[in-house]
Design a protein around this nucleic acid. Structure first.
Lengths: 249, 249
DNA sequence: GTCAAGACTTTGTCCTTACATTCTGATATA
DNA sequence: TATATCAGAATGTAAGGACAAAGTCTTGAC
C-alpha cells in the first residue's frame, strides 16, 4: 500500500486561553505554511485524523481549515483531500495602510503633514454618512519611502477624531492613530484611476516631465459598518502600483 | 414592552433540492435585501427564532447568516443582534469581467479581436505555472462600450484552450468562453498602475493629447488553485476606473 | 488485457445539545 | 437621584453523531 502520509504539524491547544480553539489551530497551521514546514502541493492531514490527534471535535477542526481556505492557504476537494495551495493564491491581510505596506517591503516610510485643519466637505461628508455641513478633520500629507516622495494623501475624519495631532500622524501613521482610539477599519470601497497631476501634485511629488499619477479614493468602515475614514490620494505612477487579490464570494 | 419585531421574510426551503439548505436560505434572505424588503439598519430575525420558524437547525441558519455577513449584507453583534448593513459595505461578486461590468451598468459592450495566435511568452508562462517555452494562446482585443474604445486587452491562455475562436470571443467574451469549457476563475491577483500610452495603444484607444492609461495585469485561478488566465490590459483613464471592495480576512 | 462495478477514503451537509460571552434594560440599593 | 446588580436576549464556541456525495483505487468479469 502506498502510504503518502501528510507531514504532521506540531500543534498545541490551550483550552484555558480566551482565543477560540479553531483560531489557535488555524494560526499554528498557517504558521507551518508561512515558515515552509508545509509546502504548496503538500497533502494536509485529513480532518478526522487531525481532530482525533488533537482531541478536538470535527466541526472545530473544520472551522480552522475553513479559515485557512478563506485566506487561500488551503484547497479542499471532496474525495481528494486537503492540500496546501499554490503560493500565488495566498492572501495576506488586504486592508493595509501604505505605511504598513512600505514597512513590510523593508523600506523606510515617513510622512510630512502639509496641513491639519477642520473643514466642511460635501463629498467627504457624504462618504462618511454625515450631514454635508459636519465639521471634519482634514489631513493632507506627503508620504515618502526612503525620503523620496511617493504619495500625496488627503484624508477626512469624523469629528470624534479631532484630537489627532500632527506628531502622532508623522510618527505612527493614520491607521495606527485610529487603532489607538479603538477603531479598526475592516472593509473599504476603493476607486482606482489615473490622470495627469495638477501643478500642486507635481510639486509635492517631485514629478518631472509627462508622468501621470495613480489615484485612489477610499471609504473605510469598521466591523459594525460605520464609516471611519474617507481618503483621496494620488501616487507617483513611476514608483507605485496597487497589488490586490480579488475573489468570488 | 417595546416590541421591535423584525420583518419576517417569507422563505421556502426545498429539502429535496441538491442545493444546500443554508445556501437556499442565504439566497432568499439576500433577495429580500436586494429588492428592499429589508432595509439597511433593519433588525434581522434572530437565529434561534428563524431556525424554529423554518424547522432548520441553528448551525444551518448560522451558516446562511455567515454567508451573508461575508458578503457584507449583515452585521452581527453579540448581545445586540443582527442587522442589515449599510448599503455602502455590500459586496457583489468581485471577480467579474469587464464585459459583465459594462452590461451591468447598462452599457453595450463589444469586442474586436486584433489578433489570436499561438506564441511563447516567458512572463505569461511563469504566471500560468507553465514552462517558459509552452505554447500559449494569445488574444489581443479592443473592448468598446457603446462603440467607444475603452480598453486594449492582452490575454494568454494555457494550451488546452487553443480551440477558442475569434467569433466566440467577440460574441460572448473571454470569461464566458472559459465558463463554457467548465473553467471558472474564482480568485485573481491584480496589479494596477498608470503610465503614458504607447503609440499603438494611443491608436487603438483613440487617445488624443496628454492622457495616461490605467494598467491592470491579472493572474486568475480556479477553485483548485490552477492558473487559468494571465492578462495585461490598459484602459482609457478618462473613461474608466476600477472599483473594488477590500477587507481584512 | 480492458473495462466496469464496488469498496474505501475524504470532505460536505445537517441535526441536537450545552454552555459562555456580551450587551441592553430593568430592578434594587445607597 | 444615581449607581450597582441582575435578568434577559442575542450571538459565540464547542461537542458528538449520522448520513450523503465525490473521487480514487482495487477487484472482478468478460
Amino acid at each position: 500500500m502506498l502510504c503518502v502520509s501528510a507531514h504532521l504539524v506540531t500543534v498545541e491547544i490551550d483550552r484555558d486561553s480566551p482565543v477560540p480553539l479553531y483560531h489557535q489551530l488555524a494560526e499554528q497551521l498557517s504558521g507551518a505554511i508561512a515558515d515552509g514546514r508545509l509546502q504548496p502541493g503538500d497533502p494536509f492531514e485529513n480532518e478526522v485524523a487531525l481532530a482525533a490527534r488533537l482531541a478536538l471535535s470535527r466541526p472545530t477542526v473544520r472551522r480552522a481549515i475553513q479559515e485557512m481556505v478563506d485566506q487561500g492557504l488551503l484547497v479542499r476537494r471532496r474525495g481528494l483531500g486537503t492540500h496546501v495551495a499554490n503560493r500565488k493564491v495566498h492572501r495576506r491581510a488586504e486592508l493595509t495602510s501604505l505605511w504598513d505596506d512600505l514597512r513590510r517591503e523593508g523600506r523606510h516610510p515617513s510622512s510630512s503633514v502639509v496641513s491639519l485643519e477642520t473643514v466642511t466637505d460635501e463629498r467627504a461628508a457624504a462618504a462618511l454618512d454625515l450631514p454635508a455641513d459636519s465639521p471634519l478633520l482634514r489631513v493632507v500629507r506627503v508620504r515618502s519611502a526612503d525620503d523620496a516622495p511617493i504619495a500625496y494623501l488627503h484624508n477626512w475624519l469624523p469629528p470624534r477624531f479631532s484630537d489627532v495631532t500632527r506628531e502622532e500622524l508623522e510618527e505612527t501613521g493614520l491607521y495606527a492613530a485610529l487603532r489607538a482610539r479603538g477603531v479598526k477599519p475592516v472593509v473599504a470601497r476603493q476607486t482606482i484611476g489615473a490622470r495627469m497631476p495638477t501643478p500642486t501634485e507635481r510639486r509635492h511629488l517631485g514629478i518631472r516631465g509627462q508622468q501621470p499619477v495613480l489615484t485612489m479614493s477610499r471609504m473605510a468602515f469598521d466591523a459594525a459598518g460605520n464609516a471611519v475614514e474617507f481618503g483621496d490620494h494620488c501616487y507617483r505612477a513611476e514608483d507605485y502600483s496597487i497589488d490586490i487579490m480579488v475573489d468570488e464570494r
